[in-house]
Design a protein around this nucleic acid. Structure first.
Lengths: 134, 134
DNA sequence: TTGCAAAACGATAATCTTTCTTGTTTATAT
DNA sequence: ATATAAACAAGAAAGATTATCGTTTTGCAA
């Protein structure tokens, strides 16, 4: 990642300092909740409005710059939309990580079984991370 | 399903008409949002409070009688907790259906790759259902 | 550059959604 | 039957998200 200006332009969104700041934070931490992002960006833009944050999040989700990750028993997190991947959550330290899995066969099976034609999926695995296992 | 009274007792929750009503609706429709459930149960319990609904949903999720299904771009739905399974959503008619898939190999792979020990998963597939394909 | 129109911004009000509080009623175990 | 702990309804409160509106900024074109 890096050129957030270009990304915004490619998606026909105006380039504003607030948006650049948001993207750079999200990109840096990987995944973030609304309230974490708000707390974080206030360090750089002490007067940014929470309404601006929500509106920008929504615009960027809409044009698919960002993606919302819904997680059982916790708040949604947002990430920069990259190639499709799954997520895993550690139930102890609560961290969320990306996970690259091939679901082709699974999805093909699902398709055969159900008659659906699938083009999107959301998989979250829950467990204990290596560090918390000790 | 059927004996909701027993289910509540087994989970140490008191048996009330409101709870029985909720369970019977949820069981009947399979998956339901809070607001749908509220509209529905008001037909039988015209004076039930929304607070009661939320409290009961939360209690029943807590003791694992119910399960919340979080779905991208739509409101959470609740179902009666049965054996583990996945879900599929039709993007056209928006229906949500159960889907039984074996994810053992996928999860084993994920575990090998990441070092996590997984004991839970949430998979939702999005696409077009057979009816909407015509 | 400069100027214009459209979009974004901040502040705050409005609207959900969910939880909390309180006084009353009900379920269950004795 | 009765006691008590839990559940109930109603509404207030809290929290999360969206809408409104006057001001500022951006992107574009003269």
């Amino acid at each position: 990642m890096k050129n957030y200006e270009l990304i915004l332009k490619e998606h026909s969104l105006k380039v504003t300092p607030q948006r650049l700041g948001m993207l750079s934070i999200i990109d840096y931490v990987g995944h973030i909740t609304i309230e974490e992002l708000f707390a974080n960006i206030r360090k750089d833009f002490c007067s940014i409005s929470i309404a601006t944050l929500y509106k920008n999040i929504n615009s960027m989700v809409e044009v698919k710059i960002l993606k919302e990750i819904k997680i059982s028993n916790s708040k949604s997190k947002y990430e920069i939309l990259k190639n499709e991947h799954s997520h895993m959550v550690c139930k102890k330290c609560e961290k969320l990580e990306d996970l690259n899995l091939c679901l082709d066969i699974t999805i093909e099976n699902a398709s055969k079984k159900s008659g659906y034609i699938f083009d999107e999926n959301a998989l979250v695995l829950f467990g204990i991370c290596p560090e918390c296992q000790r």
